[in-house]
Amino acid sequence: MTKSNERKLTIARAMAEATAQEMRIDPSVFVMGEDIGPLGGVYGNTRGLIEEFGAERIRDTPISETAFIGAAVGAAQDGMRPVVELMFVDFFGVCFDAIYNLMAKNIYFSGGNVKVPMVLMTSTGGGYSDGGQHSQCLYGTFAHLPGMKVVAPSNAYDAKGLMTAAMRDDSPVVYMYHKGLQGMGWLGTEAGATVHVPEEPYTLEIGKAKVVREGKDVSIVSCGMGVHNALKAAKTLEAQGVSAEVVDLVSLVPLDRDTIRASVAKTGRLIVVDEDYMSYGLSGEIIASVTEHDISVLKAAPKRVAFPDVPIPFARVMEQFCLPNPDKIVAAWDEMQAA
């Protein structure tokens, strides 16, 4: 592709484009949530939609997450394909019953006789000093509970394909987008997330991870913002003569264990990078996926670079101290060698 053919979009724009394209061909798709109408979403992912589709299909809601997520379940079971937004994933506390007891269980409770085709978009991530109720990832919390597919794009190309796939899925999909990747300047955007996005609609397979950088000495596995940290660390390691492979999980549920295992089988070493809390979460699951399958492939004990088990602190230096970053990943490699 030449530079002039390039069509770089932010994740926010890619999500909005996917939604608009799907709404044009499928009248059952509609969007509801807080500030998703004239404001275009706090993170820009519904920008321009109300102008094209009107307030009937782009519905600003009262601040009533239990009601509108529950309503999305009812509408989904009744033939619609709602896309709802939980503005910050941290707000799950006021509405988790509607999410995990209702949205995630009704297909099972009905023995598969009802479908729940809905997308729950929610923002994740910190790094901009928003404090402990507006900065979490909670990947493990959502991925732990059966009945929800969970995706977490790291770039705009994946974001568009995942969004379209999520809207076409007959099961509920939790779409976790990282605020630091959204392309909102005021959040200190990661440039690597803004990539070429084809204009025509396409889907990405939910449940398929990607090897985004090939290497032979160590596999660094992550999702969302962690992928960019991993890629930066891989560059540093390359300068030291270490060849790091980077696996972007893309989907957390279903988890593509085959791709993870194949990568670690090749490199023999594993570092998991997770912006969610360390314990009982994604990082442990990835390591278990490898070790319980075939521990003999490992040449060294696996390492985790994850958020420590503390609420997310406000002070910039404290939060930055806790967050994963490329230096910590390189340090994890060094520790692996020293061991």
């Binding site: 529950g70 009812g74 989904a76 079971q77």
Partner: peptide, 10 residues
């Protein structure tokens, strides 16, 4: 409550 309201919306 939520699902019934959502079905009514649908």
């Amino acid at each position: 409550m939520g699902p019934a309201v959502g079905a009514a919306l649908s």
